[in-house]
Simulated scan of single mutants.
Amino acid sequence: MEAILRPIYQERASQPNTLGVIIIEKIQKSIPTTDTFDAVLLIIVNEGEQSVFVKHYSYEQKKAALHIVTEEKLNEWLLLGTNKKIFDWLYNGKVLFDRNEYIENLKTELRDFPFYGRKIKMGLEFSKLIRRYMDGKAFFDNGHYLDAYNHVVHSLHHLARLAVVESGFHPEVTVWHQVKQIDLEIYKLYEELVSSEEAIEKRLELLFLASEFLIHSKTKVGIAHLLDVLSEKESWSFNDIMYHPELLEYSVDLSMLIQYLTDKGYISVENIETKGPRVYHRNYRLTNKE
């Protein structure tokens, strides 16, 4: 397979813009690592007109996919976890070309998983967790149980990914396999939700109670990055928080997270007078809560 695809990747490897080439071959039909393709060629480039360029090939009743990805987009995937397959590709793919040991150094960094990188990823996962949990709770309180169920499943996924990151690992495609080894309590909670024969309303009611405790236990590690940023000054408008360079990736989840932390006493509200009577600017500041 590699020999057949060699002309495709050799042309790219000869270009100075190319940092590395990896081939990933399909091994298990049940694992969607290669998106049903028999092989995937991942080519990492320094920069490109498109952040991701994909091309499909056919050969000998088989099919292959070529993914040309810029270094910037790759780093975004690694930080945000928006392409879960990328970790499997980097860990398990065969390196065909590696300029100045770029891929080897990247894999070393992923294995070491620097603590600062972990803090950011935990913050992002926690913010998504809170968004899904609170939306799910609102649907539940209004009797929309199927919508609540959907949000709770997603919130548990973020809780699971948070637990994996906290343990020093990157969440992979088979995240529940990871969690089963790392945090059995979260795994059993998820198992209970999806496999219980109880009525959906009862399942959700019990899960919200259990989730409240687990979220509380993960709050300090989940908000450590955000609190580091907010400690830079005493008072913040929400716009200043939203556009801080380190918080841009929190995106639409940030407002819900700030409200959650206000409700829990980690952040206090400071009302600042405006020109209008009885209308105040709403600023935020850290409390002394440990």
Rank of each mutant, 00 (worst) to 15 (best):
E166G: 07
T274E: 08
Y187G: 13
F113D: 04
A163L: 02
L257I: 02
Y59E: 03
E273F: 01
G117T: 00
I241F: 01
L66Q: 14
N283H: 15
W77G: 04
D141M: 11
K137Q: 13
T18R: 05
G143A: 12
N288T: 06
E11P: 03
L206D: 11
V164A: 09
L78K: 09
L162M: 10
P32Y: 03
E101N: 15
S30F: 08
M122L: 15
K55S: 10
I44F: 08
G81P: 02
E192R: 07
E185Q: 12
E270W: 01
T34K: 05
S231E: 12
P114R: 03
F140H: 06
D38V: 01
L247F: 13
D253E: 14
E60A: 15
I31L: 05
H158C: 10
I130R: 01
Y260S: 09
N46F: 05
V153S: 07
T18I: 13
L248N: 02
E185G: 08
V175F: 07
H225F: 15
L247W: 10
R278N: 13
L230S: 09
V194D: 00
I23D: 11
M256R: 09
R278I: 00
Q61N: 15
D183K: 14
V279L: 12
Y187H: 12
K94F: 01
A148S: 15
F169A: 13
Q259D: 15
V175C: 07
I27S: 11
G143C: 08
N150C: 08
L106V: 01
E191W: 14
T219H: 01
L159C: 12
R203H: 02
H281F: 05
E125I: 03
M122D: 12
S231Q: 11
Q178H: 01
Q50C: 09
K289Q: 13
L248C: 02
K264D: 04
K218L: 00
W77V: 05
K220C: 02
Y145D: 07
L146A: 08
S251W: 07
L74P: 03
I130K: 03
P114K: 00
D38M: 04
N83Q: 12
V173I: 15
I27G: 04
E246Y: 12
L204R: 10
F238G: 06
I86K: 00
L162E: 07
Y190E: 10
H158M: 02
Y102W: 11
E270M: 02
E72T: 13
F115D: 08
R278D: 14
L42M: 14
K26N: 12
A160V: 11
L90Q: 08
I27K: 14
D183W: 00
N150K: 02
G168V: 03
I215R: 05
T174F: 06
V164I: 15
V279E: 11
E11F: 12
V54G: 01
E125T: 10
Y145F: 14
L209T: 14
W236L: 06
D135Y: 08
H244F: 03
M242D: 02
S211W: 00
A224T: 09
I43K: 05
Y91F: 12
Y91I: 08
D35T: 09
M256F: 07
T34A: 13
S268W: 04
I120G: 05
L78W: 06
K62F: 02
Y260C: 10
D141F: 04
V40M: 12
E270N: 13
E60D: 15
V54Q: 14
Y149P: 09
L184W: 07
D135L: 09
H56Q: 14
D183V: 04
H157I: 04
L110Y: 01
K188G: 02
H225A: 15
